[in-house]
């Protein structure tokens, strides 16, 4: 472990270096993680095999037959010193969601607990632009934030063993969509018809770390229409490039 300025370089044996910028979920920390990811992806460091961003750290996997941890550490620290703060081009997505209680098993309970109506919960959730901190848990699962303060609740005391795919969920300061059926302890406040992960596509995941997301509330009728278009592979949510 090497202490240096305000980040730490940790070791994952001879498999990876971990650049840790903090221990919290924080937009400033995330921006530093994603900024370094961009620098390293552009630099194409010899021996580095894969770069994985999380909330507060960047994991640089390497092939110990092609480089050494010490060599790679030096090269990365030098790149960090040389890099200025440039604005980055990111993608802003508009994702349709149906917040009707029929598609949102927990929205009434959430509304009661935070002292708002179901419509107000939906409007607050859809009225916020979210930052994709990282993708993890299962392929394509986007951890997004920050949730408006009024909607923040701890995770459910009794996690579900099966959360249906497409479920829009909230917990603590975060929101996410489950791309696959899986166990889950978050509150389900809607369903999105969009496919968040497609192993037959070139990149697999719809979203990437650093993307921005806004949700658009749709009624049950439009939800069904989009579902059918998704099944025919004829639907892609709208997105555009933005500078951050």
């Amino acid at each position: 472990m090497t202490g240096m300025d305000d980040f730490r370089i940790l070791k994952a044996a001879d498999s990876a270096l971990v650049f840790e910028f903090g221990t919290a979920i924080d937009r400033k920390i995330s921006d530093r993680v994603l900024g370094l990811a961009e620098i390293l992806n552009n630099a194409g460091l010899p021996g580095a095999t894969e770069i994985v961003a999380t909330f507060r750290s960047l994991c640089v996997n390497y092939d110990s037959l092609k480089t050494t941890g010490a060599e790679l550490e030096q090269a990365i620290v030098a790149l960090m010193k040389g890099a200025g703060t440039s604005s980055q081009i990111r993608r802003l997505w508009e994702i349709p969601v149906c917040y009707d209680p029929e598609f949102a098993p927990d929205i009434e309970e959430v509304a009661t607990r935070v002292g708002l109506s179901v419509a107000e919960v939906a409007a607050l959730h859809a009225g916020t632009q979210y930052h994709v901190y990282m993708i993890g848990f299962v392929p394509g699962y986007p951890y997004m934030g920050d949730l408006p303060k009024q909607l923040r609740l701890p995770r459910r005391r009794d996690p579900r063993t099966r959360v249906p795919p497409g479920s829009l969920a909230i917990a603590t300061s975060l929101t996410a969509v489950y791309p696959y059926e899986s166990p889950g302890g978050w509150h389900l406040i809607g369903t999105s018809p969009v496919r968040f992960f497609d192993p037959d596509s070139a990149n697999g995941s719809l979203l990437g770390p650093g993307d921005s997301v806004k949700f658009r509330s749709v009624a049950a009728g439009e939800f069904s229409r989009i579902c059918r278009a998704v099944e025919r592979d004829e639907y892609e949510p709208e997105s555009r490039e933005i500078a951050t």
Partner: peptide, 11 residues
């Protein structure tokens, strides 16, 4: 509990 961090084979 820590804020989620990356995993490698052998962690």
């Amino acid at each position: 509990n820590i804020v989620s961090d990356s995993i490698v084979g052998g962690s």
